[in-house]
Design a protein around this nucleic acid. Structure first.
Length: 664
DNA sequence: ACGCCAGGTATTTTT
DNA sequence: TACCTGGCGT
């Protein structure tokens, strides 16, 4: 295999070691995707693995897609049996096959965060608690945390001490019951149920353990406990195992990612070969020096030192502005020069910030300066009302037990079925001990509901039945189009939201064309297959045509990307790092913030600017923060601008000291 | 059933 | 400051 000739010695070792487990500690920009794809190719060409015997798992659909296309380019053969997927879609595939062993039906629905919040709200209400929004979020993240550490409602209840935890335990129990009744699972369930399946059903476990001879996991530093368990279950006692990751880029601890998984890899896989990839092919030396200086301050890490052959480069610069508008204007100015004097493209530029709220100043300024931009993240395409409506129809049609989806669409478009009616059906269902959809079928027996409304209910129900029949054998695109037509959905959009109606229609059209794409590219173009993948899709996956447009995004969204010109904005205490010294676990959290900063820095290929504002409007109030601790640690070149001279009452002793340090 | 207003609340979110 | 949600009035 001559493709491996262009690998460096470390990459080569990581690619070809097959007789023992391999842990690849891949620094930013060191070619880890290359190692994974070449390893797959190598194991097929040299170890005679069949593509169907390989499982490669990543976190994002985008990464999986990229890897897939690179592998099929390398192999030049049929790769349809090769599993290169996200954890979640691998689990969906397993569950669609065997979930009946856990007492679910194979056409289960996948609930997203919003659906989840709705279920929790319902659970709280039926427990006689006040469903406050902040409550719901807190509870949902606790439930999610429990699930991703494989803690059952029963165990959770046993450990619950405080009143809050007891409430969570109650909600958790009820929540699970409701999901089960709806034949639905949430994102966490995809993983936990797959693990459960593998743990409790030997025949399933054996099937996959036998099938997958070669297992690769990307971004291993971000795996949580369930993912870890799953990986263990499939790969235990195998030699063709490869985990790739960078502990310095672990930025999801707050979501349950356990950095110990990567730090303990040696213990879990005895005889492991550890390969460090330290040559960076992305950035210039000044940028890497900055990154190294910063990350060196962390204690919980495997020592690594990135280097590059690109010794020459612009210094990393830091600028302190007066406020966030000045900051945005200055950045806009630089971008303008980049495009118009350096003759480079807007598409090569990215602006990063810690929180989405900070995008606003940039958007305002860029709009004024006619700089084209896109905001990555924020409101998700699949969270838009009109998109969710149509998908809820598809789900309700595919899974007749799905109450959440059914209730969502029962009055969309408006057909005179309101909350009161729903309550009556619900009460009837509870009294008779049947499900909501079953009660709906019998609604003509409900004399508490007016004959007129009863007729509407029957009409709705038979429409659903009819759609269900028509859906048989129809492609997803045609089916969606027919659904839109039958519902007169565009008409409904015009009436219900006359302001942004054209945007909403465009969203629906985009949904239809995404469905068409799916139909053309997928082996199984059925509506249920479409639902599987659409539930797991995110914005990043669809809106990546950044051609000629500046990208604005949070630092978390920046992971895995690279840009020639990068602005890291809002480098201020309390903003980035966004934690306070008084916080519990301050040091641990500070280290995660530092890794986040490291991720941001290492996105830059040629030029990196760090910016901060002395004052910044937040929540309608002016806030004054010192430049970030990270500035001291990075030691960038300080650029003094005349207009950033300090004035006014925020010249307290601290900021004077900090400035003195910065400007000498 | 729908529209308007008040009040609460604002990290990061691969799936 | 600005958004979103839920409650209330029509």
């Amino acid at each position: 295999m001559d493709v491996i000739k262009d690998l460096n010695p470390e990459q080569l070792e990581a690619t070809t070691t097959m007789d023992r487990p391999v842990l690849v500690l891949a620094g930013a920009g060191s070619g880890k995707t290359r190692v994974i794809t070449y390893r797959i190719a190598y194991s097929i060409f040299e170890k005679f693995n069949h593509p169907g015997e390989i499982l490669a798992v990543t976190f994002t659909n985008k990464a999986a897609g990229e890897m897939k296309s690179r592998v099929s380019q390398l192999l030049q053969q049929d790769v349809s049996r090769l599993w290169i997927t996200t954890f979640h879609s691998a689990c969906v595939r397993i569950l669609r096959q065997y979930i009946d062993k856990l007492g679910y039906k194979k056409d289960f629905s996948i609930y997203d965060d919003t659906d989840q919040a709705g279920v929790i709200r319902e659970a709280l209400r039926s427990l006689g608690q006040d469903p406050k929004e902040n409550n719901i979020r807190g509870i949902s993240s606790r439930i999610s945390g429990a699930k991703s550490s494989l803690v059952s409602p029963l165990e959770f209840r046993r450990m619950a001490m405080s009143p809050l935890q007891k409430t969570v335990a109650d909600v958790y129990t009820l929540y699970e019951a409701i999901l089960k009744r709806n034949n639905a699972v949430d994102f966490d369930d995809l993983l936990t149920l797959a693990v459960k399946l593998l743990e409790e059903h030997k025949e399933v476990r054996d099937h996959y353990r036998e099938r997958f001879k070669h297992i690769l996991v990307d971004e291993y530093q971000d795996t949580n406990h369930v993912q870890y368990r799953m990986m263990q279950m499939l790969s235990m006692n195998k030699t063709m195992v490869c985990a790739v990751g960078d502990d310095d880029q672990s930025i999801y601890a707050w979501r349950g990612a356990d950095i110990q998984n990567i730090l303990n890899f040696e213990k879990d896989y005895p005889g492991v070969k550890i390969v460090k990839l330290e040559q960076n092919y992305r950035s210039t030396q000044p940028i890497l020096d900055a990154a190294n200086r910063l990350i060196h301050k962390n204690s919980q890490r495997n020592e690594k030192k990135l280097w590059t052959a690109k010794k020459e480069g612009q210094p990393v610069q830091f600028l302190l502005m007066e406020n966030e508008m000045e900051e945005a204007r200055w950045v806009g100015q630089q971008i303008y020069y980049w495009q118009n004097y350096a003759n480079r493209s807007y598409g090569e530029v990215a602006v990063f910030y810690r929180t989405h709220a900070q995008s606003r100043a940039f958007e305002d300024v860029f709009r004024g300066m006619r700089i084209p931009y896109r905001v990555v993240g924020g409101i998700k395409f699949y969270d838009r009302k009109e998109v969710k409506d149509l998908l809820a129809y598809l789900r309700a049609l595919a899974n007749p037990q799905d109450e959440v989806s059914l209730k969502r669409i029962i009055n969309i478009p408006t057909r005179g079925i309101g909350d009161k009616t729903l309550e009556k059906i619900q009460a009837y269902a509870a009294a008779k001990g049947i499900s909501f959809p079953a009660a709906l079928k019998e609604s003509n027996l409900l004399d508490s509901i007016s004959p007129k409304t009863r007729a509407k209910l029957i009409e709705f129900d038979s429409m659903m039945d009819q759609l269900r029949r028509d859906c048989q054998g129809m492609g997803i695109k045609d089916f969606l189009m027919q659904l839109i037509e039958r519902l007169n959905y565009f008409n409904y959009l015009e009436q219900s939201s006359p302001v942004d109606e054209e945007q909403r229609i465009r969203n629906v059209e985009e949904l239809v064309s995404a469905a068409a794409d799916f139909e053309n590219s997928s082996e199984d173009p059925s509506p249920s297959a479409y639902l599987n993948q659409v539930a797991l899709l995110t914005d990043v996956d669809i809106a990546n045509d950044a051609n000629g447009i500046v990208s604005l995004m949070s630092l978390h969204a920046a992971k895995g990307l690279e840009f020639p010109l990068v602005f890291l904005s809002g480098m201020e205490e309390n903003i980035f790092p966004s934690i306070k010294e008084s916080d519990e676990d301050y040091l641990t959290e500070l280290e995660e913030e530092r890794r986040l900063c490291y991720v941001g820095i290492t996105r830059a290929r040629e030029q990196l600017y760090l910016t901060a504002a002395q004052g910044r409007r937040m929540y309608g109030q002016m806030m004054f923060n010192q430049p970030s601790l990270f500035i001291e640690e990075i030691k960038p070149q300080m650029v003094n601008l005349r207009h950033t001279r300090n004035r006014g009452n925020y010249d307290d002793r601290n900021s004077r000291a900090r400035r003195k340090w910065i400007y000498g």
